[in-house]
Computed example of a mutant assay.
Amino acid sequence: MSSSRSGRSKSGSSSGKKSKGSHQSVRQLIESLQTHRVNTLTELCRIERVAASCETEEDARAFQSPMTAAWAYYVSSNQMLSELRGLTPKFPFCGDILSHAQVLVRNDPESNRSWNLAWLCLVKITEDELIETYAASEASRPEMWGGRQPSDEEAKELAACFQYEWDTAVQKMLRHWQATPTWC
């Protein structure tokens, strides 16, 4: 590694261009976070991986605040809910689950372990078994049954459908992180 660096240094231009180009790329990514041009799970995860692999500490620090704000915007702008609902076409994801998860995360002193509000919410949904709770509650609502009260068996059957589809969506989203987005 050091021999290739010294080879580039002799020419003088190769390492300087890479560093300048790399810094410009970092600025462009940060701008895309700040202007919310990027607001999908896949793209935010891609930028998060770039931020994690920054070559300089300066670039890594430059990403911290914009990345944190971008994840918060992704959740609060309902984009996360839209993507969850896109993964649950038969039984649309219950927005109350995500709202409840946000409250739990914001009230959890351990939530400062990550900059990533979306990941924290997904973990909270899983750890606190919010899907199971809301699936049972939603399946028992008369509105789900044309205004009539469902039998216990009907409610259990519908709750199982909700639970399966919603849990599958959450697990699919969690697979976007090869490593947990937490502070070291």
Score class of each variant (00 low, 15 high):
residue 115 W to P: 01
residue 77 S to V: 02
residue 11 S to D: 15
residue 143 E to V: 13
residue 105 V to L: 04
residue 37 R to W: 01
residue 114 S to E: 04
residue 55 E to G: 14
residue 26 V to D: 15
residue 144 M to H: 06
residue 50 V to C: 11
residue 141 R to E: 10
residue 129 E to N: 12
residue 96 D to Q: 14
residue 85 R to T: 05
residue 146 G to N: 08
residue 48 E to P: 04
residue 151 S to P: 00
residue 14 S to E: 14
residue 43 E to A: 12
residue 103 V to H: 04
residue 87 L to S: 12
residue 29 L to H: 14
residue 143 E to A: 15
residue 38 V to M: 05
residue 14 S to M: 12
residue 91 F to H: 13
residue 117 L to A: 11
residue 24 Q to K: 13
residue 117 L to S: 09
residue 116 N to T: 00
residue 142 P to I: 01
residue 135 A to K: 02
residue 135 A to D: 06
residue 116 N to G: 01
residue 61 R to D: 09
residue 82 S to T: 13
residue 37 R to P: 00
residue 21 G to C: 09
residue 95 G to M: 00
residue 134 Y to F: 15
residue 56 T to W: 03
residue 55 E to P: 03
residue 128 D to F: 08
residue 64 Q to Y: 03
residue 48 E to A: 12
residue 62 A to T: 00
residue 17 K to C: 03
residue 122 L to M: 13
residue 29 L to R: 11
residue 131 I to H: 04
residue 123 V to E: 08
residue 95 G to Y: 02
residue 124 K to H: 07
residue 27 R to W: 03
residue 136 A to R: 15
residue 20 K to E: 14
residue 146 G to Q: 10
residue 58 E to R: 13
residue 77 S to N: 09
residue 27 R to F: 04
residue 15 S to L: 11
residue 146 G to M: 03
residue 96 D to R: 14
residue 131 I to D: 03
residue 68 T to I: 05
residue 60 A to I: 05
residue 84 L to A: 02
residue 93 F to G: 10
residue 63 F to N: 06
residue 82 S to N: 13
residue 11 S to I: 12
residue 53 S to N: 15
residue 71 W to F: 15
residue 72 A to W: 03
residue 109 P to K: 05
residue 63 F to S: 13
residue 29 L to A: 08
residue 93 F to V: 11
residue 49 R to G: 07
residue 43 E to P: 03
residue 62 A to V: 03
residue 151 S to W: 00
residue 100 H to F: 10
residue 104 L to C: 10
residue 82 S to L: 12
